[in-house]
Simulated assay, not measured.
Amino acid sequence: MAPSSTPLERLAEAGVAVWLDDLSRERLRTGNLAELVERGVVGVTTNPTIFATAISAGDAYDEQLRELAGTSVEDAVFRITTDDVREAADVLRPVYDRTDTQDGRVSIEVDPRLADDPDATIESAKKLWATIDRPNVFIKIPATLKALPAITAVLAEGISVNVTLIFSIERYGAVLDAFQAGLEQAAANGHDLAPIASVASFFVSRVDTAIDPKLDEIGTPQAAALRGTAAIANARLAYGLFLEVTAADRWKALAAAGAHPQRPLWASTGVKDKAYPDTLYVDELVVKDTVNTMPEATLEAVADHGGDASDTVTGTQAEAESVIARLRDLGIDIDEVTRKLEEEGVKKFTDSWEQLLAKVDEGLSGAADQVAADAR
C-alpha cells in the first residue's frame, strides 16, 4: 500500500481523530472551517476563551449585536455562541454521518461558573442541547468533583458529553465511571446507546508548564533529564487506564448494547516551551481510539512536518510510571500539581467567560447607541 500523502491522513489511519481547537464566525463565513474539514479535520472544540477571542476580533458579530440590542448580555452570549456551534455542526454533519456518529462533532461548554453546581450544570446542558438541536454536538462539562454527577445525569438523558479539564489519572478514573453510569441509566431510560457519544479531554501541555519550572529550580542533571516528560507520561498512563476500563466486563456489556467508548481526547496540545518541537504533543501521543484537538498553529505545524504517525503510546506504561516515580523522588507530587491545574483551569475559563460577557455588553451598548442614532 502506498503511504498516505499527508501527516493528517497518516494520523487518521493510525486511529487519531484530528480536531480543531477553535471556532469563530469568520471561519464559518469565509469557508475556512469547510476547507479544514476537506484537509482532514473531523471535529471542533470551543471554550469560553475561544469565544471571547473570536468576538473581540474584527466585526463578524456586529450585525447580530445590532439585532440583539436591548436583550440581556447573558441571553446575547447564549444566542451568539449557540448560533456559531449550530452552523459549525452543519458544516461537519457529513463527517458525522460518514463516521457512524463518532466524529463530525462540535463542542460547546456550559457556563464555567456552574462548575460546582451540578443541578445548574444539568439544566444548562439540557438547554444548550435543545437550543442547538443538532445530534453532532458535544456539551462540555468540567471534570470537577461536584460536576461528576451532572456528567452521569446528562448522559442518562441521551445527551453527548465532552468531559473537560481532566488533569489527573485519579479524576480520569472517576470520569470513566461517571460515563459508564450515565450510559447504564440511559439504557434504563430507553435510549439507544449508539448515538450517545463522549470524549474525555485530558489536558497535556499545561502539566509540563507547571512542572518544568520546578525541575529548573531543583537544577540537578536528574531534574534536567525530566524536563518535557511529565505531560506525555501522564497522558500515556491515562490511555492505559482507558484500555483497562474497556477490557472489563462492565464496559463489554455496554458495548454489546451498542455503546461506543469514551475516547481520550488530548487537549492543550500547543507547545508552550519553544525549546520543544512544535508537534511534540501530537507525535508523542499517537495511538488508536483517541482524539487530538489542536490550535490552528499546531495543526498547521503537524500538516507541514508532523511525524510518520507510528504508535508512540502502546508499550510505554512502564516508562511512564518511571517518569512519575522519578518526579516524586525529586519531591514533585504530580497529584498536587494536577489539583492546582484543575483549580486554575476552572478559574481561567470563568475569567474568560466574564471577559466574554463584558465584550458582548460593550457591543450591545454600542449597537443600541447606533440604532438610536439611526432613528434620529
Rank of each mutant, 00 (worst) to 15 (best):
M1F: 00
S5K: 15
T6M: 10
L8C: 06
E13P: 00
G15N: 04
A17N: 08
A17Q: 06
L20F: 01
D21Q: 00
L23S: 08
L23R: 14
L33K: 14
R39F: 00
G43V: 04
T49Y: 07
I50P: 13
A52W: 04
A52D: 14
S56Y: 00
D62A: 12
F78T: 04
R79K: 13
D84T: 09
R93W: 03
T99F: 02
T99A: 03
D100R: 12
D103W: 09
G104Y: 02
S107D: 06
D111Y: 02
P112I: 07
P112W: 11
D116E: 14
A120T: 11
E123L: 15
K126Y: 06
K127G: 00
P135V: 03
N136A: 02
A147V: 10
P149T: 05
I151D: 02
A156K: 08
A156H: 07
G158M: 07
S160V: 12
V161W: 00
L165A: 08
E170Y: 11
R171Y: 01
A174Y: 08
A178E: 05
L183N: 13
A187K: 13
A187V: 11
N189Y: 03
G190I: 09
G190H: 06
S198T: 13
F202H: 07
D212A: 13
K214Q: 14
A223Q: 08
A223T: 09
R227D: 01
T229D: 02
T229Y: 01
T246E: 03
T246C: 05
L254V: 09
A256Q: 11
A257R: 14
H260V: 14
W266H: 07
A267E: 01
D273L: 07
A275P: 03
L285S: 03
V286L: 06
K288R: 15
M294A: 03
A297S: 13
A301Y: 00
A301D: 00
D304C: 02
G306D: 00
G307A: 01
D308E: 09
R326G: 02
R328D: 08
D329V: 13
R339P: 03
V346Y: 09
E354T: 14
L357G: 07
A358Y: 03
E362N: 05
L364C: 09
A375K: 11
A375V: 06
